[in-house]
Amino acid sequence: METLLATLVSGLVLGSLYALMASGLSVVWTTLGVFNFAHGALMMIGAFIAWTISEALGLGLIAGIAGGTAAAAVIGIVIERFLVRPFYGSRAMLLITVMTTLAAMIILEKGALMIWGARLKQLPRLVEGEVSILGATISAHEAILVALAPLLLIAIWQFTVRSATGRSLRAVGQNQESAALIGIDVPVAFAIAFGLSAALAGLTGTLLGSIRFITPTMGVEPLVKAMIVVIFGGLGSLGATAGAAYVIGFIEALLILWIGLYWTPFALFLLMIVVLVFRPNGIFGGRG
């Protein structure tokens, strides 16, 4: 019973991480119809900038987290402006933007390696100490991640439902021409969606930088997991994506307990194939 509880709690930590990653991908997808391969790299840049501000410059962790998040947002907007926007209206836009964001990922990863080197880095934790949930112990920092993830998801959801800007993002996602006709600035909406998504990635990176090591390739594994999440949940809606993230987190934690760390990726992949064969648009549907 105690191992099962511990497993569920570790699944909650994984699920929170995947939810933050995948919801960023979902925001960009629903607004622009672009899958951003550089999403994991933006997370990594956030962590490195945070480390530079907090550790190398000694300005403190809070300043680091703010700086890392802001830097990721700026780079996200730059990617949208120069690597995504020029290809709008092109027939092969989906494929082209996969390639340009892949190129952006290479540039960011190799750039980070040249700037910061291969030496392992880590951020200090926001708070020290441990927290006990249902008898299972996790670090207080991880507990903050777990608590913050649903709050952020609700905030994004409320933003897209209630605020005029958020609604304009959804309008653009549904029909660009009509959105433009009723006076929505479509390019601005694109930039906001990309900036918001990138900020989310950057923030996730700064939080993860205290739990895992900061390396130029630290974004790859969360990106691949986020891909599995969006295959499960479909990219169409924020709620479905976030729900799928937690489901995958729990399944992964349980699989690690049952069949071990090595075979878990296969079992997850196999599950994904089965889902796709029966539900080509993900378990929760959504557009293809």
Binding site: F35, V224, F266, L276, N281, G288
Partner: peptide, 22 residues
């Protein structure tokens, strides 16, 4: 073969990662 668009990218890409894990 039955999938469309971005899902083809995601699955083929994830397949590569899986083989690397193996």
């Amino acid at each position: 073969a039955r999938l469309k668009g971005i899902y083809v990218v995601l699955v083929t890409f994830a397949f590569g990662q899986l083989v690397m894990q193996l």
